[in-house]
């Protein structure tokens, strides 16, 4: 059949172009705009080229924040993914208790970030917090405002408490979709509990795990509110993660240029790592064996 060419059809795409332009491209370009200019106030801007990028990339302060950020995300993924899988395996498959567990699991997810931060900030206080006071009573020297290790443990535990449910719920959905025949076949084939997990449950959870890993990576890499509320980035700079530092530069010091350059690099890192996770996990289990 002859194809009809009609350039007017391009107008049909116009609404989408406008929508994407105003929701994504224009705000992003504003940031790009800031990143290549300098200002001394009064809304006067000067061309600065790649100066801010050079500055940001060579700044030791930002290197440290980036390293802290990588460690934080790695710890979060290493704790929450296995824990989430383990929890999902323990949830009853059906019945009242199943629903009960699901509701219980969903509760932390419904609490706003700053409230979570406040809860843990108070919870951990040595003078009035249940956790802090209990630790003090037991003779354990715990103080997240003065000890960097304690501050780290506190925000990691807080994030695990807040977000493991998400991984568990996603994995549970993945487990629920496995037909009973697989478990029956595994019994008949004489597979033990570990082999059922390794060869049936884990491969079948592959897709939801990908989503869980991506979401938890992106969220933990961009985390701001909770650690800011609990530790404010301290003691010292010990819990100053990337976005906390970014806010300090952009709003604390009002260095728009470096902050913009920083934002773009930040964005590219997240994009790159998400792509790596996606590619690795979707290709896992495919292709030729031996």
């Amino acid at each position: 059949m002859e194809k009809t060419f009609n350039n007017k059809a391009w107008f049909m795409v116009l609404p989408v172009v406008l929508l994407v332009a105003f929701s994504a491209v224009v705000p992003l370009m504003t940031v790009v705009n800031y990143s290549v200019q300098d200002t001394f106030g009064n809304n006067q801007f000067f061309w600065a080229g790649l100066q801010w990028f050079e500055e940001v990339l060579t700044s030791e302060r930002l290197h440290d924040a980036l390293i802290r950020q990588f460690i934080f995300s790695a710890v979060i993924l290493a704790l929450e993914i296995p824990l989430g899988i383990a929890v999902s395996l323990c949830i009853p498959k059906r019945g009242v208790w199943s629903s009960f567990c699901l509701v219980l699991m969903a509760l932390p997810l419904l609490i706003p970030w700053n409230v979570v931060g406040t809860i843990w900030q108070i919870f951990g206080r040595v003078d009035i917090g249940l956790l802090g006071a209990t630790m003090a009573a037991l003779g354990i020297d715990y103080n997240y405002t003065q000890n960097a290790a304690h501050a780290w443990i506190t925000i990691v535990v807080m994030d695990v408490w807040h977000w493991t449910s998400l991984v568990a719920l996603l994995c549970f959905a993945g487990l629920q979709s496995i037909p009973d025949a697989y478990y029956q076949a595994a019994k008949i084939d004489g597979a033990g509990r570990w082999k059922i997990f390794r060869y049936i449950e884990l491969p079948k959870m592959n897709r939801v795990l990908l989503i869980a890993v991506l979401l938890r990576f992106m969220d933990s890499f961009m985390i701001y509110t909770e650690p800011f509320v609990v530790t404010g980035g301290g003691p010292g700079n010990s819990t100053t993660l990337l976005s906390i530092d970014l806010v300090k530069i952009a709003l604390g010091q009002f260095d728009l240029g470096p902050a913009a350059a920083f934002s773009i690099i930040y964005f590219l890192i997240i994009l790159l790592l998400s792509w790596v996770f996606y590619t690795v996990m979707t290709n896992y289990g495919k292709g030729e064996g031996r």
Binding site: P179, A181, Q184, A185, Y199, I200, P203, K204, G285
Partner: peptide
Amino acid sequence: FQFPVVYDT
């Protein structure tokens, strides 16, 4: 079974 059950990986 009615539907093929194989160990994908």
